[in-house]
Write a protein that binds this DNA or RNA. Structure first.
Length: 322
DNA sequence: TATTAGGAGTCCG
DNA sequence: CGGACTCCTAATA
């Protein structure tokens, strides 16, 4: 039988790259989707740690693998139970918790997890910045940047369309708004957006405090920076965008990946997802794979992208490999 | 049913 | 004007 099986479990579920059954609901169609309520009510005056843990617990459960990959932590990952509470996770395997230094160990682990989580959040904010081509500090955002961020946030938390409630606002405007102001614009999701903005502001503040220094630090297979430096803030071309996604397998291999990097052959694994990302990037909420693929096909004539010799569905080839 | 291909009109920087 | 978006028809797997 073609029963959808795992899809019916959570009311939050819309679509997920892991599932072949990708039911695409663009933002304005997602009326039945409730926001992750546990995100709400996070007092803005809380510090990093206070803010992040609730968020990350939630986000891990929300399953946002292409953006927030908390679940990829090297620690023996707890099975993704659907309880969002930050309480002690019940070990599912036969593993006796040591009783003696339990407190110390727990505290130490907590700190490690916290550090890791903060790092991951910073990375994810950074990735989102690059994907959206906006600065990480909301204070510098234009109207357009604000809208992009809103679209992105809608996408992330599967919110119905809220961006219309925040038109004509710069990042500075946004930052000067109180939580009540947010709620006034969107009674249902205002506080959540406020909290999410707070994360970005904190991330920007953190980045300012600790300068990047990333450069050669790790074997971070690939870096956006070179890509982004080439086109500081110009309108990006589709082929460039696709290449960017391909150069970030860590985040996007579930939706687009190389089949043969040397030859420039790649496969779009989740066409709807790639289209959605492109739509967010270009501020085109109505973007879909139909249109995206039409744009790709325009590249045939221009000799930028072509179908590989053996044509396969959703497989394309850069004429000039990277 | 989703993907592929390409024509054609439109919009925008 | 170029590039992308949009809508379209038709073919194909």
């Amino acid at each position: 039988m073609g029963s959808p099986g795992c899809t019916a479990q959570s009311p939050l579920y819309i679509s997920h790259p892991h599932h072949p059954d990708t039911r695409m609901a663009w933002l304005d169609e997602a009326e039945d989707v409730k926001p992750p309520r546990s995100l709400l009510g996070v007092p803005p005056e809380l510090s990093w740690s206070g803010v992040y843990l609730p968020y990350c617990n939630r986000l891990a459960i929300e399953e946002n693998p292409w953006v927030l990959r908390m679940t990829d932590a090297p620690a023996p990952a707890a099975p993704p139970s659907r309880t969002a509470e930050p309480g002690p996770a019940k070990p599912s395997q036969a593993q006796e918790p040591p009783s003696g230094m339990e407190g110390q160990v727990e505290e130490c682990c907590l700190e490690q997890v916290q550090t890791m989580v903060v790092g991951e959040v910073l990375k994810d904010v950074d990735t989102a910045c690059k994907l959206l081509n906006i600065a990480s500090d909301p204070l510098g955002w234009s109207y357009v940047h604000v809208q992009k961020w809103l679209l992105w946030t809608e996408h992330l938390y599967r919110l119905p369309q809220v961006s219309t409630m925040f038109q004509e606002l710069t990042g500075r405007d946004l930052c000067s708004m109180t939580e009540a102001d947010f709620r006034q614009r969107s009674s249902q999701y205002g506080d959540m957006l406020y909290a999410h903005l707070d994360i970005w502001r904190s991330a920007a503040a953190m980045k300012a405090r600790c300068p990047p220094e990333d450069s050669k630090s790790g074997a971070d297979d690939d870096s956006w920076s070179d890509v982004m430096c080439d086109y500081p803030s110009q309108p990006i071309h589709l082929w460039q965008f696709l290449r960017e996604l391909l150069l970030k397998p860590h985040n996007y291999s579930r939706c687009i990946r190389w089949l043969n990097k040397e030859k420039g052959i790649f496969k779009i694994e989740d066409s709807a997802h790639v289209a959605r990302l492109w739509g967010i990037r270009k501020n085109r909420p109505a973007m879909n794979y139909d249109k995206l693929s039409r744009s790709i096909r325009q590249y045939y004539k221009k000799g930028i992208i072509r179908k590989p010799d053996v044509s396969r569905r959703l497989v394309y080839q850069f004429v000039k490999p990277v």
